[in-house]
Design a protein around this nucleic acid. Sequence first.
RNA 1: GUGGAUGUAGCUCAGUUGGUUAGAGCGCCGGAUUGUGAUUCCGGAGGUCGCCGGUUCAAGCCCGGUCUUCCACCCCA
Length: 458
Amino acid sequence: MAQKPSIPKGTRDFSPQEMLRRKYIFSTIERVFQKYGFLPLETPAMENLETLTGKYGEEGDRLIFKILNSGDAWKEVSDDTKAKLKAGEEVHPGKLAGELAEKALRYDLTVPFARYVVQHQNEITFPFKRYQMQPVWRADRPQKGRFREFYQCDADVIGSTSLLNEIELVQLVDDVFTGLGLQVVVKIDDRKVLSGCEVSGQPEKVVDIVTAIDKLDKIGREKVEEEMRTKGVSDEAIKGIAPLFELKGTWHEQRPILQNWLTNSTIAQQGLKDLALTFDAVGALKSATLEFDPTLARGLDYYTGAIFEVKSLEGTMPGSICGGGRYDDLTGVFGLKGMSGVGISFGADRIYDVLLETNKFPAELGGSTKLLFANFGEKEAMHCLKLLRTVREAGIAAELYPDAVKMAKQFKYADDKNIAFVAIIGENELKQGIVTIKDMKTGEQRAVKQEELLSVVG
RNA sequence: GUGGAUGUAGCUCAGUUGGUUAGAGCGCCGGAUUGUGAUUCCGGAGGUCGCCGGUUCAAGCCCGGUCUUCCACCCCA
């Protein structure tokens, strides 16, 4: 019985037209990556489960796609676990998953990169600059602009603590969105400044405070304070961080206030100094606006310094289309200490949605045929085959309609495929050594000598 | 993972208090035009009404479950 075919939840097919547009995004990003000295890297779609678990927080572990062991996965489950299940006792889902699956699909590109760096540390010249453009998978519930399989385009520098890297990444982001013709705002913050929240007297609550603050522009100040209270942050501490909510204006206006407020935190002062240097050194940007956002936190645990997030100023995409930051010890969990890195990740799928909505894709995206030879039968087709060769050698994408079907069908094919010209060589043209060329856009057609074909369509 | 909405032709959607043979536009195929697409005219094909079960003499419509997509949380690109 034929079954209705479908694809898994949150995944997509990409039609030829969509692919041309996606490739335009990828190649724009890739060109800029290479211009800044990043080199390509690919890692496998699957990693060992233990490589991924524990790297993205508790929530992240839940969202990792685990791969059931091949063969009889159940057979390999420990007797202890089996006995517990049989007795109706509770088994920790993570433990059970660990016994049924030893591989998992990658959740992002950063952790596999860290794994790669540790594994190949003796072959790598540091600082190591790599870029990586591959799909990642998350068992999230799909929503608009949110999929279970999506592409990330990452560039990271590892093995350098210099702030020059942060500065260059901001310029790189500007270059990419200038190339794509999109106005964006680059929001920047520093975890070291957020750590300054410890002046509030509850240093152990910094993570809870930070993740609540991250939602400020979304849910408002009252709800943020409410969330902090439910997480056990004291009223005193909430009062203590009030200056953060009241910040207004540009970086140059905000800086003295923060400096004054966080005067007792040496770490926060360092963060402010780094931000100041970044703002000064980045200079004039082409199409991005650089903005300090003291409430920008980003969930990921491993960020320790600068944090970036890019939002489109055009279209209705609410989420970020690009994000990144510095992580001081990402490779530490794999046994390589003191290796600081900083990176940026572009969300190709969201950028696609924004460009489509705002009509920013170039009208002509290379890849489609420019010239179609109509097929009038075997004798004419054989002749076209020779011409086809010269046209292609001249670098023009051309094809010969494979079947000698009626003209209407062949012209419709050219129309549907957006082919610019149709070359007609029937019995008459063949005899006279000419070719009739129709311009599909204007509808005009004229007969030229076959030697002139290139100059007409080229 | 929690809560809510949704699903009818390839696509966008109508379909009355449950009642005979489920409709439209666009698209597709054929013809008007045996050498011409996009425009015009004529004709045609295409639907297990997401899936499974229940209520009923009778279900696209009511009920339960399940899946999909979307929305709000959670989190994130």
